[in-house]
Design a binder for these strands. Structure first.
Length: 423
RNA sequence: GGUGAGGUGCCUGAGUGGCCGAAAGGAACGGUUUGCUAAACCGUCGUACGGGUUAAACUGUACCGAGGGUUCGAAUCCCUCCCUCACCGCCA
């Protein structure tokens, strides 16, 4: 959520930035400003009336103690008439505040200056590529055949138990998941991230805090009996650790990492693009999250990109890093880099990580602040990224490393998996 | 799920209708002094939204789990909900 005061002071710049995200609802921005004007006016009215009520009430107490009943009664009558006027003010103020918040929630975060213009994924900019694309032997298979061949994953069984998009990992397939989670967490904690194991269901407040609600309501599974949401990413519970918090400046930066299963309804997406592990309703992911000083967030972003790049390099996968264009970025992000790995069996790039700086868009909602050296209250900046999402990593590992009678795993996984090959 | 006790500022904790945005102690921060792993003393020490100011000072309103109610006036009384703790029940 943007700050109203910022919008007021930078209306033109805000509109200009929003255009990069293909957001052209000028009227929404102006409505926010108008509602805020109204809010201020109503509050001034309310405050002055209420001030009179308060002082009169105090006086009534004094008069009563002195036994001056008539004087007290006169004042009581005055207060009664003031309160008649105050009631509708209160109601109106609550409505205006609600209206203001509702409008504000519809305005996306402003893209950073270096975000390229564009509408579709084709407009994303490749900033770096690394690794070597493998040349596969004749008869190479896509991962959904390899997982069957080596008895790693049973997709049909998952359909029987739950539904499509809920794979069942079996034997070495299950162990590979565990090995990857363990490796990723170790890699992250070695870089100073503190490991969290958060709840996988969150309440409504937390879902609002990170911006999943209200705009992504349909994408989350909702346990209605208790009004809990299944998390679409560990970002939600972990970022909410710092909801309603005032930090000390020297506590920054805060670095957290968390493994969690992720649940996504992904309503409306079907077809061969989503075959196998390419898109699932439940998958495993390890996330990294930082809460930082606002002056440092872009430096930190570069560091996170670097961190994830090294992780991908250690897995010996061909990858590329994209800077997303305005149209392809999420509602809450100021800048996003996507990491894709090349999966040779499908001859496709698969997104395995997304790193974003949210600046103070999330922390304004969360109210995660700190006091600077002058005692001034400032919003922190928040960032997060996947390090990494498992399914597509597995897809690429299987497809790229298929060789003869088995699949050769990268060196870093040998000790975690307990073997060099999947045979 | 049942019964009981509670939810007050960074923490402990007082406060049962006006003098309470809230005692006291601790922590933290700033300072003075003495100086050896520290003590003593003084000061500061909630947040939000307004007004005000170059910026402060100053000032209004709201907030004592959340929401509603009673009252001229609520941290304090009433109702609903949430949460915590204890015991019981159930249970990996």
């Amino acid at each position: 959520m943007l700050q109203v005061s910022f919008i007021r002071q930078n209306r033109e710049a805000v509109l200009e930035r929003l255009a990069v995200k293909n957001f052209f609802q000028t009227e929404l921005v102006d409505e926010v400003i108008a509602l805020d004007d109204e809010r201020k006016k109503l509050q001034a009215d309310f405050d002055s009336t209420q001030a009179r009520v308060n002082s009169a009430s105090k006086e009534i107490g004094n008069l009563m103690r002195q036994g001056q009943k008539e004087g007290a009664e006169t004042l009581k009558a005055e207060v009664a008439s003031l309160k008649v006027g105050i009631e509708p003010l209160k109601v109106k103020m609550a409505n205006v505040e609600k209206g203001l918040l509702d409008k504000l929630l519809l305005i996306p975060n402003l893209p950073a200056l270096e975000v390229p213009k564009g509408k579709t994924p084709e407009d994303n900019v490749v900033v770096r590529e690394g690794g070597v694309k493998p040349t596969l032997a004749e008869g190479a298979l896509p991962h959904w055949e390899l997982t069957t061949k080596y008895k790693l994953i049973d997709f049909e069984l998952g359909t029987k138990i739950t539904g499509s998009g809920f794979p069942v990992y079996i034997g070495k397939g299950a162990k590979l998941q565990r090995a990857l989670v363990q490796y990723f967490l170790d890699f992250n904690t070695a870089a100073g991230y503190v490991e969290y194991l958060p709840p996988f269901l969150v309440n409504e407040e937390s879902a609002y805090g990170t911006g999943q609600l209200p705009d992504k309501e349909g994408q989350m599974y909702h346990a209605t009996a208790d009004n809990f949401y299944l998390i679409p990413t560990a970002e939600v519970p972990v970022t909410n650790v710092y909801r309603d918090t005032i930090l000390k400046e020297d506590e920054l930066p805060i670095k957290m990492t968390a493994y969690s299963p992720c649940f996504r309804r992904e309503a409306g997406s079907y077809g061969k693009e989503v075959r196998g592990l390419n898109r699932l309703h439940q998958f495993e992911k390890v996330e990294i999250i930082q809460i930082v000083h606002p002056d440092k967030s872009y430096e930190v972003l570069d560091g996170m990109v670097d961190h994830i790049e090294k992780l991908l390099q250690s897995l010996e996968l061909p990858y590329r890093i994209l800077r997303l264009c305005g149209g392809d970025m999420s509602f809450t992000s100021a800048i996003t880099y996507d990491f894709e790995v090349y999966s040779a069996g499908q001859d496709r790039w698969l997104e395995v990580s997304s790193v974003s700086n949210f600046e103070n868009f999330q922390t304004n909602r969360l109210k995660c602040r700190f006091k600077d050296a002058n005692g001034k209250m400032l919003l922190t900046h928040s960032l997060n990224g996947s390090a990494l999402a498992l399914p597509r990593i597995v897809a690429a590992l299987l497809e790229n490393n298929q060789a003869g009678e088995g699949i050769m795993l990268p060196r870093v996984l040998h000790s975690y998996f307990g073997a060099e090959w999947i045979l």
